[in-house]
Design a protein around this nucleic acid. Structure first.
Lengths: 139, 139
DNA sequence: CCCGGATCGTTTGCATGCAAATTATCCTGC
DNA sequence: GCAGGATAATTTGCATGCAAACGATCCGGG
């Protein structure tokens, strides 16, 4: 039997995932240059859920505490979000969309849907369904 | 009909891809703490192809010129690779594995295969085949 | 009531990643 | 043979990402 000694980088799931992510990022940046993918994720989650503590926003957008802090800082610098102290818990920072943030989100929403569609464009409907189901098992 | 106004972050392909990538990274770091995913990709490609120019190595590992430079610098600092001037093209830098680099690669190879297996563990054989085929179309 | 564990936010350090500009070199067509 | 375009490497600037350590605060149990 073969020893399994060989290792073809291009066949490894991690490498393929990285290339797919790169292609998606390129599509995103082309369609929505105003914010990055992670910044948009934060805006989308705030639009979906309303104001959230910084930490919870990070958990809901899959960013650790250090990463979400940077994203929040940069979004605040653009006046797309604002942060206020939580009166009930002095550790917490409440993050909410500004008017400008909500306006931007709604303005680019069609583009955001188009990004998902364009990313999945090479696939048939069945393949899209299969991909979604499979990736959910891996997330 | 619905306007399609809603946007659920967790359903977007880009977000799901990011979470899957995060899980894979955690599995990798746990199994091979010596080098990062990108560093290992570079080692693997050099092991697979032999010495390569820095730029070509970058293309084959899906890193742009700036990124591969950093990776090469750090691998060289660990004496896992070495760089030499190309006598035929003075622009080029030839990158090759050192003895230590090849030894490390071969030592962690079983772990690398295990990483792919562990990442795909939640899937059936059919799902793995489907995923591989679908991601290739998206890469 | 208070103490020890948990949570929240911050900071530092390191490693990707991409964009854009720069320099050096190569190569091709005229 | 040389001028202009392409390629290789570098550098800078910005934005993730994760790990680890830290101080402040909260909370539950004794």
């Amino acid at each position: 039997m073969a020893t399994g000694k060989s290792y073809i980088l291009d066949d490894q799931i991690g490498f393929v995932l990285r290339r797919v992510t790169q292609r998606h990022l390129a599509i995103f940046t082309d369609a929505i240059p105003e914010v990055t993918t992670t910044q948009f994720a934060a805006l989308a989650k705030l639009a979906e859920m309303g104001p959230l503590s910084q930490n919870l926003l990070g958990r809901l957008t899959a960013m650790d505490a250090a990463t979400i802090k940077g994203v929040v800082d940069r979004l605040r610098k653009q006046d797309l979000i604002e942060t206020t102290a939580d009166p009930d818990d002095r550790r917490r920072l409440t993050v909410s969309l500004t008017e400008a943030g909500r306006a931007l989100f709604e303005r680019v929403l069609p583009a955001a849907h188009a990004i998902t569609a364009r990313t999945l464009a090479p696939l048939s409907d069945e393949e899209r369904q299969a991909l979604q189901a499979i990736l959910l098992k891996l997330a």
